[in-house]
């Protein structure tokens, strides 16, 4: 009997890894997705974020995003808020990393103060939206363990790879994400986020794709629906420009203080 118990326990321990064994297909898809989006350099975008509560009331935030690609690590991003006017000038700086937690800072213009966001807070809401701070960083394959699930038809007559991504970081707000990646352009067109209790928390749908520099696809509409609280957030990109002359020094705590 003792032997059987040990054997069963042993099997139970092995089981999750056995399921995850997809012959490396999931990781391959993730790496291809990253490779297709490599070399874009820098970009600047203007966006509106629309928050919607469960009663359907809305509130708008206007913001500008500056992004800078880093070759051997995660990308750098700077988000500057223009509206509502009481938060005008508030800016958010993030250094995504592939093997360690992202560095994130918030600049409060009234106090001229830069505040670090602790790495655990990454699962918290970004500026009151249904996007978490961790959703705002760049996609880095090293941050997840991947499992290829299947191919199936998805939005707009496309075929998608369906891939599960399990965050490596124990302070992620998610146990897993299921992403639909279109087989032609390797774009994540939809992602489901499962919370720490492994129940469906949010669904992100990306649409209104446009091609830049003949190579890089950007979604101009992001819809994040929270299934647990009935709230949703839409981010609409009005414009994106590439090769705007940004340099890495435009993404520092010092430059955060002059962001606008």
């Amino acid at each position: 009997m003792k032997l059987i118990t040990t054997l069963v326990t042993g099997l139970a321990l092995v089981a999750p890894f056995a399921i995850a064994d997809d012959g490396g297909r999931g990781l391959e898809i993730a790496k291809e997705r990253k490779a297709r989006d490599t070399g874009w350099g820098d970009s600047q975008a203007e966006m509106t974020m629309i928050l919607r509560n469960s009663q359907g009331e809305t509130s708008e935030r206007k913001m500008r995003l500056k992004n800078f690609e880093i070759q051997d690590d995660g990308d750098k991003g700077l988000t500057i808020f223009d509206e509502p006017k009481d938060v005008s000038g508030t800016a958010f700086l993030s250094f995504s990393h592939n093997t360690k937690p992202d560095d994130q800072w918030l600049y409060l213009p009234a106090l001229k103060r830069v505040k670090r966001i602790s790495s655990r807070n990454k699962s918290g809401p970004f500026m009151g939206s249904e996007f978490a701070y961790e959703d705002m960083g760049s996609f880095e394959p090293e941050k997840y363990e991947f499992t290829y699930l299947r191919d199936e038809p998805c939005a707009q007559d496309m075929t998608c790879h369906v891939v599960e991504s399990d965050p490596v970081d124990k302070f992620s707000g998610y146990t897993r994400q299921i992403s639909w990646i279109d087989t032609e352009h390797m774009r994540a067109v939809k992602t489901e986020y499962y919370d720490r209790k492994n129940t469906l928390l949010k669904t992100l749908e990306l649409s209104e794709w446009k091609l830049y520099k003949d190579k890089f696809w950007r979604a101009h509409k992001l819809d994040m629906q929270n299934h647990q609280n009935g709230k949703s957030t839409t981010i609409i990109t009005h414009s994106i420009e590439f090769d705007t002359g940004l340099s890495e020094s435009d993404f520092s705590q010092a430059s955060l203080k002059r962001a606008r």
């Binding site: 602790s118 655990r120 807070n121 699962s123 918290g124 809401p125 009151g128 707000g173 609280n229 709230k231």
Partner: peptide
């Protein structure tokens, strides 16, 4: 120190 509990009451609040 500053320690933040994310969503301790099951809602969006920190």
């Amino acid at each position: 120190f500053e320690y933040t509990l994310v969503g301790p009451f099951g809602d969006a609040a920190d």
